[in-house]
Design a protein around this nucleic acid. Structure first.
Length: 227
DNA sequence: ACCCAGGTGGCCC
DNA sequence: GGGCCACATGGG
């Protein structure tokens, strides 16, 4: 089976099994951006709590967050960890948006993709994954997001030789139709799959992709090609 | 008590 | 380029 078809079939299997994940859960693009930094290396439930705290303080807008007292921001986001770093980073991001775009995210995203991406990457605390999450879920740009689950997914199913971020990203982007909703849903489903089944070794039998795996590969051992 | 979580940046070689 | 490490809280 051609790889493109296999990838899409995997997507449909996951969608059928788990249902739509409705990512990213947020009211505004700005909320997505803040959440993207807060969720780094921490549970989404904790992030929701932090987001909720920020909301209650009226700090979930670029200008308000930019001008808030650092201590107040730290207090609000404590549940999601690394609060000292992350507070500085989300305030820095807010300041940047206010100073350069008057806090208008449509203006920020309404330019060429690579330019927006490079600007994001220059911000403290925004690496490739966070930048791409923001582009896909806040900016509705057609960019596939690669996270630890995605790399694990690929190495589990022997999809890519290389575990490098850009290699995995290109693999998905080359094998899928360019469709923002598809990219959003697929990434969310991979995370869901990883959370529920694919951390255990050997691969849990209940994994929706096991047994009749569309790739026809043995999956009883995890490959170690940097994943 | 230990391990992990929707990473990133800094350092070292 | 790769391999560690700190960053910090909260849940299993």
């Amino acid at each position: 089976m051609p790889l493109n078809d296999a990838l899409l079939e995997a997507y449909h299997q996951l969608l059928t099994h788990f249902g739509s994940q409705h990512w990213w859960p947020a009211d505004t693009a700005f909320e997505v951006m803040i959440g993207a930094i807060l969720t780094q290396q921490s549970r989404w439930l904790s992030v929701e709590e932090s987001i909720c705290n920020l909301k209650k303080k009226g700090l979930l807008e670029p200008e308000a967050l930019a001008n808030a007292a650092p201590q107040e921001v730290e207090e609000a986001i404590k549940p999601s960890g690394f609060y000292h770093q992350k507070a500085a980073r989300i305030q820095n991001l807010s300041r940047y948006l206010v100073e350069h775009y008057n806090g208008d995210l449509d203006r920020f995203f309404g330019r060429e993709l690579l330019q927006v991406r490079n600007e994001l990457l220059q911000l403290d605390g925004v690496g490739p994954e966070t930048a791409d999450s923001i582009l896909l879920y806040a900016g509705a740009k057609c960019v596939f997001v690669v996270d630890a689950y995605t790399v694990r997914f690929c190495s589990r199913f022997g999809l890519t030789k290389e575990g490098r971020y850009d290699a995995v990203k290109s693999f998905f982007e080359a094998g899928l139709p360019r469709n923002v909703s598809l990219y959003r849903e697929f990434h969310a489903l991979i995370v869901q799959l990883g959370k529920q089944y694919c951390r255990a070794r050997p691969l849990c039998e209940k994994c929706p992709l096991s047994g009749k795996c569309v790739y026809g590969l043995e999956m009883n051992s995890e490959k170690t090609n940097k994943g």
